[in-house]
Amino acid sequence: MRARRTHRGFTLVELLIALAIMALVAVLSWRGLDGMTRTQAATRAHTDEVLTLQAGLAQWTADLDAMLDPTELPPLDWDGRVLRIVRASTVPGQTGPLIAAWTRRGVADGGQWLRWQSPPLHSRGEMLQAWERAARWAQTPSSEERQREVAITPLADWRLFYYRLNSWTNPLSTADTPQTGRTTIEAPDGVRLVLELPPGGALSGVLTRDWVRPTVGGSGT
């Protein structure tokens, strides 16, 4: 007579333990995936910030490289708040000079480095008006003027120096500013830009960029 086989199944306790292990594995897997996603997002934001700053510095150099020397205005002017530059338009089909301006504007969470640009100008009157608009934009911008500005990067502070008479000097100092026979001031041989980037971003600390006028020798760097 054969013995009857008995088939033993999982007990309730064993089933609960298995479910608990599966839940733990699922939680650990989710945390791993979430960490990878956060890391990728942070890396992408870091890269975007660096590329945006590089594009802003490239535009800064392009504005200075395209600087003109009109008779009505100085080629560039720094009043401690805004740098205004008279430059040539490089947009295809749009000839004539334009005004580019750079400033730092304080905001609730610190400050922003901003650039403003006028449309191409076709008369002396338009040029003088755009020059004044650039100054107003840096102080009390209207909604219309804000539409022509581009935010470059968060900025704690910034400083400018001109290279003239074989040394870097404060642009607001007139004691060693070379004058021409006109009423305007000559463009310096170089411009030093010093940016103080706030902590917490992709880049922080002090960044210095020197530009040399192409006619002096070499290109902007």
Rank of each mutant, 00 (worst) to 15 (best):
I85R: 03
D189T: 02
R133D: 14
N170S: 15
M127N: 05
Q179T: 07
R4W: 05
L15A: 07
E186D: 09
R133H: 09
E196W: 04
S89I: 03
G56W: 00
A88F: 08
A151Y: 00
E126S: 08
Y163A: 09
M22Y: 07
A135F: 06
E14D: 06
D189K: 11
D210Y: 01
Q94N: 03
G32L: 07
D189P: 03
P119C: 01
R2G: 04
T6E: 12
F161K: 12
R81M: 10
A18H: 07
V27K: 02
M67T: 15
R115T: 13
L16Y: 10
V91T: 09
R8N: 05
S123Q: 06
R213M: 14
T140R: 11
R192H: 02
R148T: 09
R104D: 04
R164I: 02
S89H: 08
T184D: 11
W158F: 14
S167R: 15
A58L: 12
S89G: 14
E145Q: 09
P141M: 12
T184S: 14
V194W: 00
E14W: 14
S204Q: 14
V212Y: 08
D189I: 02
T103I: 00
I185M: 12
E145M: 05
T61G: 15
P198D: 03
D77K: 05
A175P: 00
S167V: 10
H46I: 03
S167W: 06
R105K: 08
L197P: 03
W78E: 10
